[in-house]
């Protein structure tokens, strides 16, 4: 979402080229004085875009959204966690991070501050694969960036304190939709994912109703397995390669009618639910309401949706970690 009281600064292309992910709103003013909106926060900065503007030595108008101090503080906290050994120290540090998260996002701090800190600290996926995702759909990349950041905070609040495990959660969530980045990815596939998110189990039905092709359906239905294959090929990226199986759970439902395996709720572990919940929290959208009001967004997560996906317990613990509001949600599902 574009801020109402944005602070615009001039940003020459050479400075903008230093960024990997756009952390603000980017504008270009024409000779006539008209202002064009070029890029939104959370979008990967394309090489061709840089080349194009480098020749013209463009100077953009830029409105940064992230709070550098907050991002740096999160990074420091992650680093501190990384070098702790004992369980109690890890737990206390995690508590600190969760408390800091809560304190930070009670103010109007942009969620990208946290997402960028997480990306810089935990991202281990090859940049080519991320580019591939970005090229497939830049909103898909943006969704992955945000949901991966959610995986970190969900993991912390669910008693996962170990840095390598959190890092694995991050990368699994970030690359969860890499299975979608096939040649037949289309608007239908993206929308099916959104429908699946809004009303779990409805994605396939919606695609058929809209007349999506079999190939598109195939991309949608096979993407957990494709993602699983991808991660198996890149198992060296993970501290706990056995966690790769988590990818197969992303579209499982509480009633056992999810895909690809139809696993009932009682057999979904908390580590799987962390990734499922994080993925469910973000849709493939152009704009996100939660960017500036994360906490209220998390607490207002729809009950019906929670009943359908096997993440109720993990969600409760998330709310518990972020405040006492979980009590209101206790009967959800």
């Amino acid at each position: 979402m574009k801020p109402t009281n944005e602070k615009i600064i001039s940003l020459p292309i050479k400075d903008f080229a230093k960024k990997i992910i756009c952390d603000g709103h980017l504008y270009l003013r024409s000779k006539e004085g008209r202002k064009f909106y070029l890029m939104k926060p959370g979008i990967m900065i394309d090489e061709s875009f840089i080349k194009k503007h480098a020749t013209n030595q463009t100077v953009f108008e830029y409105s940064p959204v992230i709070d550098d101090t907050v991002a740096a503080q999160f990074t420091t906290q992650f680093r501190e966690l990384k070098y702790l050994q004992f369980e109690k120290d890890l737990r206390l540090k995690t508590q600190d991070i969760v408390a800091f998260f809560k304190g930070t996002f009670e103010r109007d701090v942009h969620f990208l501050s946290f997402a960028m800190a997480c990306y810089n600290e935990f991202c281990a996926l090859p940049s080519e694969d991320l580019k591939k995702m970005h090229e497939t759909d830049l909103h898909l990349f943006r969704k992955s960036l945000y949901s991966a950041a959610f995986a970190v905070i969900v993991g912390f609040t669910n008693d996962f304190y170990h840095y390598p495990m959190i890092k694995d959660f991050y990368n699994l969530t970030l690359g969860l939709d890499l299975g979608l980045c096939e040649s037949h990815y289309s608007y239908f596939v993206a929308e099916a994912c959104n429908h699946e998110n809004q009303n779990p189990g409805s994605g396939q039905v919606w695609m058929r109703g809209e007349g999506a092709s079999e190939m598109e359906l195939n991309v949608f239905l096979k993407h957990p397995e494709n993602g699983y294959k991808y991660f198996q090929e890149h198992a060296e990226l993970f501290a706990y390669p056995e966690l790769i199986e988590v990818v197969l759970y992303q579209h499982e439902l509480s009633n056992g009618k999810g895909f690809p395996r139809g696993i009932p709720k009682g057999q979904v572990s908390s580590w799987e639910a962390v990734v499922i919940l994080a993925s469910s929290l973000v849709e493939i959208r152009d704009e996100y309401k939660f960017e500036t009001e994360v906490l209220s967004y998390l607490f207002a997560f729809e009950n019906k949706k929670l009943a359908d996906i096997p993440v109720h317990r993990v969600y409760q613990k998330l709310c518990m970690g972020l405040g006492d509001i979980f009590k209101l949600k206790e009967n959800a599902g």
């Binding site: 995690t94 969760v98 609040t157 009932p264 709720k265 613990k317």
Partner: peptide, 18 residues
């Protein structure tokens, strides 16, 4: 191919953090 029982909900939820 285990089936789960949903009629026995867990009472309460705990967290070591809390």
């Amino acid at each position: 191919a285990a089936a789960s029982i949903t009629s026995y909900p867990t009472e309460g939820i705990t967290s070591f953090q809390v």
